[in-house]
Design a protein around this nucleic acid. Structure first.
Length: 873
RNA sequence: GCCCCCGUAGCCCAACUGGUAGAGGCAAGCGACUUAAAAUCGCUCGAGUCCGGGUUCGAAUCCCGGCGGGGGCACCA
């Protein structure tokens, strides 16, 4: 009976062994090629590890183990992105220090990760909230500050009253906070900014240097949003603007259409709005500005809404033709993009066209080739008309000539504009890195010298936001008062850094985690960097990955790192979806199936009001073959595949799966579900399949009693047929693992074990390679069997098996015979048979000959080893 | 509205990148074992590749147009 596969016994045993033997510890070894495989470290939330973490972490663990077995010196670390809002919200609610809740959560995560048998070098664990870590985050901030990449600005920010903080643009989704979904409003505040825009061009160009999925690069390109165009100055018509002498600068990507600019639009926040507004328009303009300021970004950018705007009463002069054009304000022009003002060319821009139609402004065609511009804007290609010296020129030529003309006249210049804005880098929170900055009475700010780092977070009596926008750190009276580097009294900066700060450089700390002289040593950096493989969720495509690249480039310019990019290859794991089983309740409260719900309630559409929807936990569903049934009432449940969420009751807890099937089965199942990058639904019943595979392997190889091997494993030479299967399996598993196609790699191992089951005896030499390969995927059973095979040291130190291609060569091959592309039979021919031999063999086949009867063979297509095709006429 | 990815047995997925549509798993069916069931072992069933065109000797694979699902961007001048 001891032959039974008991993951809950063998798994803890080997986890302890690995810890005690310290098998995953790595150090720099110039003799060996390095491989740095990195996970996106988790935010240690209170709900613990979820199956999505397990997916990515298993993938990297397999790669790490594979590379180790291949002889690489593998760096595979883990740590904690532990600053952040949830811990602070918890502190506000309970009064418990965020450090304590964080430590507790980390302990849970760590226990869960260890339970999964991941091969991390835990001696390199980092925690962004440790003083020994964040002193270097502060140190890197000083580098940014020294390079003039950090500055203070009064900017309209996303103020979230509920959270008591400002948020970065990236943290605001549809006008609500990414975390919590609270309303966000615009409010001008004094904030720290990082000049990421200075690196926009390099962040864009260097995407060509790295091996990332296309969709991810595309998202970064969109975010950076480079557009080529021109800045053009329109002089304000002084007479119309109370004698004001001013210029309105606009950005346009279509300088070729300048002759068609029939009006201008300023954003409501534009500084010239107030000075140019005519007395007669003052009331309307002020009302419009007030109205716009109360709108959220969501409302302002709602595409469905009509264009709105107000005439200022002022005019400007089109520099090309000297014509007076009216200046309007409208909220479809954004203050934060370009110059906050546009020239409107209604004939060739859909937004301007809509606005012009609504307010009856002139529409003048300047690019021919489209339909009537009075009916619709023509945004396509064409030839310049009504454009003076540009007439007859193509769009491309007209752009170039206009820019040259503007530059000569000093009325504008060619320029490149970016959608990317500077990074709002401060938060009005407690649980973050304090800025190493002090303020003196004269309003100047000063960096703390390096020797005064770390600047530790002070203890507070409570963590509540002040509500005014002033950060909680302002309450730390003793901490607040200090001296400037020159000895003058000063007060500390009370903002803290955003959560992204710590995660911007953690991959560098792993390479030298305990260094207290420097964030990392140059030697270690040169050995380990760049990260060879970085796996994580796509939700970080533009935020974390862009910020890290930015910091890395700054560090590169400072000579602190040796590579221009941090992450050579990035892979996104697809989301694991959950299955929800719904039933419904009628207005009378009776539980019914979906079909009956429609009948009872006379519903015509698909939508059933949420109040009438009930869900059955997947574990409680009763199955009749493939039909999910209600556990009590027995009617059919409606299955929905969607994102896992607590409220839908479809969250799978890794701990539960390990309890039932073991960590190896969980790892294997998540890899077997499908391609790593693809979204796929969790299927409780399929976990059984891989669990069954492991029990089969166990029964095949483990002795029925004691700690040895099954009797069917024997010494001696490997029989020819088995040897062929063995080498075929090694080849396939090697290639699939190399390409991270773990699902098919596992299938190859399953096939091999199915083959082994048909053998009466199996030579020992045919199972060792299998055990080694299996150990990369399912390390516990792999280690157990490795020891049972007779090894004393860990399978971690084994060699990845190699295969002999010559073993796989077949003497003959079966190929298909087609006539006009239709399958008519197969023939068995020698592998090196030539076309004549193949045709002869085919004509000996009755079916083939029957179809060829009476036809003329016009052409023969022969692809050796694949196909023979007759073209007849 | 624009951009990207995906549609293959009841389900999750393979198919050497244009060459016999099926490797693996789930589910189902049959048999063996069992007093019976579960577990286990063995065997079996199963789609012509979302739809319509095109290129080709040959298309799941390439091209065009739809439909369906997922993701991203969204007045960015």
């Amino acid at each position: 009976m001891s032959a039974e596969y008991k993951p809950n016994e063998i798994e803890p045993k080997w986890q302890t062994y690995w810890d005690e033997q310290d098998v995953y510890r790595v150090t720099e070894d110039p003799e060996r090629e390095k491989f740095y495989v990195l996970d996106m470290f988790p935010y240690p939330s209170g709900s613990g590890l979820h199956v999505g973490h397990v997916e990515g972490y298993t993938a990297t663990d397999i790669v790490a183990r594979y590379k180790r077995l291949k002889g690489f010196n593998v760096l595979h670390p883990m740590g904690w992105d532990a600053f952040g809002l949830p811990a602070e919200q918890h502190a506000i609610k309970t009064g418990e220090h965020p450090r304590e809740a964080t430590a507790r959560n980390i302990a849970t995560f760590k226990r869960q990760l260890k339970r999964l048998g991941f091969s991390y070098d835990w001696s390199r664990e980092v925690n962004t909230t440790d003083v020994d870590y964040y002193r270097w985050t502060q140190w890197i901030f000083l580098k940014l500050y020294e390079q003039d990449l950090a500055y203070i600005a009064e900017v309209p920010v996303n103020w979230c009253p509920a959270l008591g903080t400002v948020l970065a643009n990236e943290e605001v989704i549809d006008g609500k906070s990414e975390r919590g979904g609270y309303a966000v409003v615009r409010k001008p505040m004094r904030q720290w900014m990082l000049r990421i825009t200075k690196y926009a061009d390099r962040l864009l160009e260097d995407l060509d240097l790295i091996d990332w999925p296309d969709h991810l690069k595309e998202m970064q390109r969109n975010w950076i949003g480079q557009s080529q165009g021109a800045e053009v100055d329109f002089a304000v018509d002084a007479e119309s603007a109370g004698g004001l002498d001013a210029k309105i600068r606009v950005f346009t990507t279509r300088p070729d259409t300048l002759f068609g600019a029939t009006y201008m639009v300023l954003s409501p926040e534009h500084p010239l709005v107030d000075p140019i507004t005519a007395a007669s328009q003052r009331a309307d303009v002020d009302a419009y500005i007030a109205q716009a300021s109360h709108k959220t970004d969501l409302q302002r950018t709602d595409l469905a809404k009509d264009k709105t705007g107000v005439f200022t009463g002022a005019y400007a002069i089109n520099p090309m033709n000297g014509e007076r054009v009216p200046v309007w304000i409208a909220d479809y022009v954004l203050a934060t993009y370009g110059t906050g003002a546009i020239m409107a060319v209604p004939a060739h821009d859909e937004r301007d066209w809509e606005f012009a139609k609504k307010f009856d402004l002139p529409i003048v065609e300047v690019i021919s080739g489209g339909e009537d511009v009075q009916e619709a804007a023509h945004t396509g290609d064409g030839v310049a008309v009504n454009s003076g010296f540009l007439d007859g020129k193509s769009v491309v030529e007209a752009k170039a000539e206009t820019i040259a003309w503007l530059e000569e006249k000093g009325a504008g210049k060619g320029t490149i504009n970016y959608k990317l804005r500077d990074w709002l880098f401060s938060r009005q929170r407690y649980w973050g890195e304090p800025f190493p900055i002090v303020h003196t009475e004269d309003g100047e700010h000063h960096a703390l010298p390096e020797e005064r780092l770390p600047l530790e977070l002070p203890e507070l009596a409570d963590y509540k936001p002040t509500g005014t926008g002033e950060p909680p750190l302002a309450k730390a009276a003793d901490w607040l008062q200090t001296t400037a580097p020159d000895g003058r009294p000063a007060t500390r900066e009370t903002n803290t850094m955003p959560q992204w700060a710590g995660s911007c450089w953690y991959y560098l700390r792993y390479i030298d985690p305990t260094n207290d002289e420097a964030p990392w040593s140059p030697e270690a950096e040169q050995y380990w960097m760049p990260v060879d493989l970085y796996v994580g969720g796509a939700e970080h495509a533009v935020l974390h990955l862009l910020y890290s690249r930015f910091w890395h480039k700054v560090l590169f310019d400072c000579g602190l790192v040796s590579t221009p990019e941090p992450f050579q290859r990035v892979v996104n794991q697809g989301m694991i979806l959950g299955k929800t089983y719904e039933h419904y309740t009628t207005s009378e409260g009776a539980p019914v199936s979906r079909a009956d719900m429609h009948k009872h309630e006379n519903l015509t559409g698909e939508e059933i009001h949420p109040d009438h929807v009930r869900v059955v936990a997947p574990a409680n569903v009763k199955w009749d073959g493939n039909t999910p049934l209600h556990p009590e009432h027995g009617f059919e449940l409606h299955e929905i595949i969607e994102k896992m969420s607590k409220s839908r009751g479809n969250v799978v807890n890794p701990d539960d799966v390990i309890e039932t099937y073991g960590a190896d089965a969980l790892r294997l199942y998540e890899m077997f579900m499908g391609p790593l990058e693809q979204a796929k639904p969790w299927d409780d019943r399929s976990v059984n399949g891989v669990y069954r595979f492991l029990t089969r392997v166990w029964r095949l190889l483990a002795a029925e009693e004691g700690e040895g091997l099954s009797e069917r494993v024997v010494d001696g030479a490997i029989e020819e047929g088995l040897n062929k299967e063995l080498h075929r399996m090694i080849k396939r598993v090697t290639e699939e693992t190399e390409d991270m196609r773990f699902n098919t790699g596992i299938a190859a191992m399953m096939e091999y074990s199915n083959f082994l089951y048909k053998q009466d005896t199996i030579a020992r030499g045919a199972i060792e390679p299998f055990v080694v390969m299996l150990s990369a995927y399912a390390p516990h059973i792999g280690e157990e069997l490795w020891h049972r095979v007779g090894h004393d040291s860990s399978v971690v130190h084994a060699d990845w098996p190699s295969f002999d291609e010559s073993v796989l060569v077949e003497a003959s091959v079966e190929i298909a015979v087609q006539i006009m592309g239709k399958m008519r039979g197969t023939i068995e021919i020698a592998v090196d048979a030539d076309q004549d031999a193949a045709v002869a063999a085919a004509r000996a086949n009755e079916d083939v000959e029957r179809h060829l009867e009476g036809k003329t063979i016009r052409r023969v297509i022969f692809v050796p080893g694949r196909i023979l095709n007759f073209v007849v006429g």
